[in-house]
């Protein structure tokens, strides 16, 4: 069930994900979104995200990255979150190390609906040091879910 108040569904959160590079994070999260019926093509969505990443890396400092893809394969705009077991170097962006990955799946025809607003709100909150500090303290998927959904 899609709840407009929820910015990240619990099923779309991975905690302690063990991966070796950013491509593996993106493909793991794409698989997850596919299983959860957010996207209808893993490959197409994955390619859209990688293409965007090659354009300009989405590492934003503070151990955060926000890969995103806008694609016809997205059934409803959503966010997936992965907290990595170990920090990894993110794409071609110098030596940025990333541990928290918010991946946004954006519907191609999505214009101005409520869910988009939720994604935009989350983006703003990632600039709030207190919010970031709080979710970095989370020690489980349940805790993360509560913290990231408190913001609306």
């Amino acid at each position: 069930m899609q709840n407009e108040k929820v910015s990240i569904e619990k099923d779309n959160i991975l905690f302690d994900l063990d991966v070796k590079d950013y491509r593996e994070v993106i493909s793991t999260l794409s698989d997850l979104l596919y299983e959860n019926h957010v996207i209808n093509s893993k490959e197409e969505f994955n390619n859209a995200v990688i293409e965007r990443e090659n354009d300009i890396s989405t590492s934003i400092g503070n151990e955060l990255a926000i890969p995103h893809g806008k694609s016809e394969s997205v059934l409803h705009s959503s966010i997936a979150l992965a907290v990595l077991k170990n920090k990894i170097k993110w794409g071609g962006e110098g030596n940025d190390e990333v541990k928290y990955v918010f991946m946004l799946a954006i519907e191609d025809r999505d214009k101005g609906n409520k869910h988009l607003q939720v994604l935009a709100n989350l983006s703003s909150h990632l600039m709030d040091d207190d919010f970031v500090k709080e979710f970095k303290k989370a020690e489980s998927k349940d805790q993360l879910f509560k913290i990231v959904n408190k913001i609306n």
Partner: peptide, 14 residues
């Protein structure tokens, strides 16, 4: 920004 969602609003907040 390109997708018009994430970076746009982060830059605004900053």
């Amino acid at each position: 920004c390109i997708a018009g969602l994430a970076h746009t609003y982060m830059a605004k907040t900053k």
